[in-house]
Design a protein around this nucleic acid. Sequence first.
DNA 1: CAGTGGTCTAGACCACGCG
DNA 2: GCGTGGTCTAGACCACTGG
Lengths: 254, 254
Amino acid sequence: MTEKITKLKLIKSGHPSQTTRPQTKYQRVENIIRQRLIENIWKPGDALPSEIQLATELDVSQGTVRKALNDMVAENLLYRRQGLGTFVSQHTERRALFLYFSLAGNNGTRILPESKILNFREKEPSEAEFTKLELMNRDRVIQFQRIRYYEDVPTIFETITLPLEHFPDFGSDSEPPNNLFRFYQSFYGITVAKAEEQLRAVPASHEESNILNVPENSPLLEINRLARMLDGRPVEWRVSHCDTTNYHYIKESG
Amino acid sequence: MTEKITKLKLIKSGHPSQTTRPQTKYQRVENIIRQRLIENIWKPGDALPSEIQLATELDVSQGTVRKALNDMVAENLLYRRQGLGTFVSQHTERRALFLYFSLAGNNGTRILPESKILNFREKEPSEAEFTKLELMNRDRVIQFQRIRYYEDVPTIFETITLPLEHFPDFGSDSEPPNNLFRFYQSFYGITVAKAEEQLRAVPASHEESNILNVPENSPLLEINRLARMLDGRPVEWRVSHCDTTNYHYIKESG
DNA sequence: CAGTGGTCTAGACCACGCG
DNA sequence: GCGTGGTCTAGACCACTGG
């Protein structure tokens, strides 16, 4: 009994600043783990310490650690494999495909389409780019465009804008690969944690009609997506114009 | 000790058929609750018995009931209000808006747009309708079309198809209201539990160009949505053609 | 086999909503 | 005050994985 009381005292006195703004233990555990992910102390693919080790280190019960980890698994930041451990999520092909790429063939199958870079430049951000990417100073941006092919048919025309700040020497070595998120993660230690998409129907421009081999002004699906890192800062703004004759965007709700 | 052992024996012997295909207790609890929702024993808006009552009734611990309920809260079938209880989800305006209606103004605000019914008929299903709605016999279907307005501007043209089987006397009393899901729920006891959407860009037909007041062949966003009931059977097929000049479809991932 | 996550229990105490 | 869900603990046992 006395031991219990002492423990509670210790916990409360150990966090005196949080008496006004109460925070649960599992939230504190979550924040600690989140911070370690942001600081790359635990890298994508790494196994975390076991639940019992974490519980001991952070002086909480295993159940509290479980709750925190389960929350983060639900956020796709971690994944579990029974008998093996808890791991930091990576931007594998599968993850890219099911989390951040929603186009599927009319039969329902998804493929991560091949892509070809058309152009590349470093420049001052436009007003829209400055706002969208939440740039602070007049930081420069990287911008490139590419075509993506579904079964060798050009289907998507993409314009991608990145804050130069986070991507030094981008594109100087070699062409950026097909799976950009994995590239950001493995070369720059930047993990895309979430994204917001806005969809519209737009007419094909003259340039797009040539590239995608469709009539001018024919309808294209515009996917306007802002991707954010673990700490919430924007990392990539991507505008994709898609010929949805043979493919469509899918979403499940409920 | 002996009590514990006896209890375990009881549980196992109480479910002899499940020794080969093991199922966890919380899954069993989930299935029982799910079944009661399907059978309308607990109706939308009702409070469930308290966790302790359920635990006693089903002979499991409160923690097991918690896990089952939390899973179903994550599925949006139930919601919790601390201090009050656990409730069956309803198709309120808010729910309709945030779960099943993804159009937002370019400033980010969402509105459930007003609608006007254009026509209504009962007919034999087409081949596509038969397949999509997973009709078994040659059941008849109800079909109607409507315009939806955003700030008094016609913006969406919808074609809605329902299996007549589930909607006797549909439309004979009065016009179906704006929020259809709530109507299905309160008048027919049918809850829409999930939906699958496919999005494309399509050209405006001659008819649509008149209705939506846009040039013929101008790009429209097509939302092709199949809604399913609690037990997974299709209840509604809706094809919406949207003028996305002032509005767009939104999705958050991560 | 040892170590991991997954399930389940029993019980304590807290925070909230309502009468 | 009372009943509800929300947090937290401690410990048991199961199921899976790998060496």
